[in-house]
């Protein structure tokens, strides 16, 4: 089921200079959401901004009926979102898209997250650990002030490795260097990736060379968020081998890395 409803904001607080965490009371959505899915959120009661904002689900608490969103303030919509107060209501549509998948056979997996892309990997890591997998959490950001949720990954029991561009926290360099090390020393059954496009491309290349299956979560400007407008497409190779466009909102946002074609 997909719901279009008003939900109550339970919390909306700044967690890092540009990042906010919003907790929604949305039991219907929490009961059905899976890691990797997203919500389309109306950020204003007026017609400006006109489009809803796709925000990935960071944590799902089915028992308490809550959904946690972690978002970066980047434009007018997310700025309005950051000003909303607990107790007020917000219109959301979701859960949308296809989330991450895992198989019983997988024993050791890695999640690779960069910047805001770390957010949906929190819920995924919770589920992977619950399913008894050994999880490497490789997290990257420009600097310490932009690194999301690292402590939470440690609390969960993931093997956390961190890289920052300026070396202000963890290793100096890119998160892909961490992945390279893990690939060289450990037999990974699956890699999950969400982050900026250059990072995603590098992760796809590394996993392809190492023959490790990889799932990537993609980002694109969205119109409807439900698959009707064809606004948010990515290039994929179809089963017959021809190039075609798939909808990031509806066929994704999670794709297997082998089907996605990245333009240089």
């Amino acid at each position: 089921m997909v719901y279009s409803l008003k939900t109550r904001i339970l919390e909306n607080k700044k967690i890092l200079p540009d990042f906010y965490e919003m907790v929604l009371s949305a039991s219907a959505i929490a009961a059905e959401a899976v890691p990797g899915q997203f919500l389309m959120i109306k950020t204003s009661p007026t017609q400006v901004p006109f489009l809803r904002r796709p925000i990935s689900i960071s944590r799902i608490n089915a028992e308490e009926g809550t959904i946690t969103l972690v978002y970066q303030v980047v434009g007018s919509g997310t700025k309005l979102l950051s000003a909303m107060t607990p107790g007020s209501e917000i219109e959301v549509v979701g859960p949308l898209g296809n989330g991450f998948t895992w198989s019983e056979k997988d024993k050791v997996v890695a999640i690779v997250g960069g910047g805001c892309g770390i957010a949906p990997l929190v819920a995924l890591t919770e589920e992977l650990l619950k399913a008894g997998k050994e999880v490497y959490a490789l997290l990257g950001a420009q600097n310490r002030d932009k690194l999301l949720s690292d402590r939470y990954f440690i609390e969960l029991g993931a093997k956390v490795m961190i890289a920052t561009d300026n070396g202000s926290y963890g290793r100096q360099g890119f998160v892909t260097q961490l992945l390279e090390e893990v690939i060289n020393t450990t037999r990974l059954d699956q890699v999950y990736c969400c982050g900026p496009l250059p990072m995603t491309k590098a992760v796809v290349k590394l996993t392809k060379e190492a023959l490790v299956p990889c799932q990537v979560s993609l980002e694109e400007r969205m119109g409807c968020g439900v698959g009707a407008c064809l606004g948010c497409v990515c290039k994929v190779r179809s089963e017959e081998g021809s190039l075609t466009y798939k909808k990031v909102c509806h066929d994704g946002p999670v794709f297997t890395s082998s089907e996605v074609i990245f333009d240089d």
């Binding site: 948010c232 497409v233 466009y245």
Partner: peptide, 8 residues
């Protein structure tokens, strides 16, 4: 096929 992204 339609146009390449960005389309919106």
């Amino acid at each position: 096929l339609g146009n390449p992204p960005p389309r919106i």
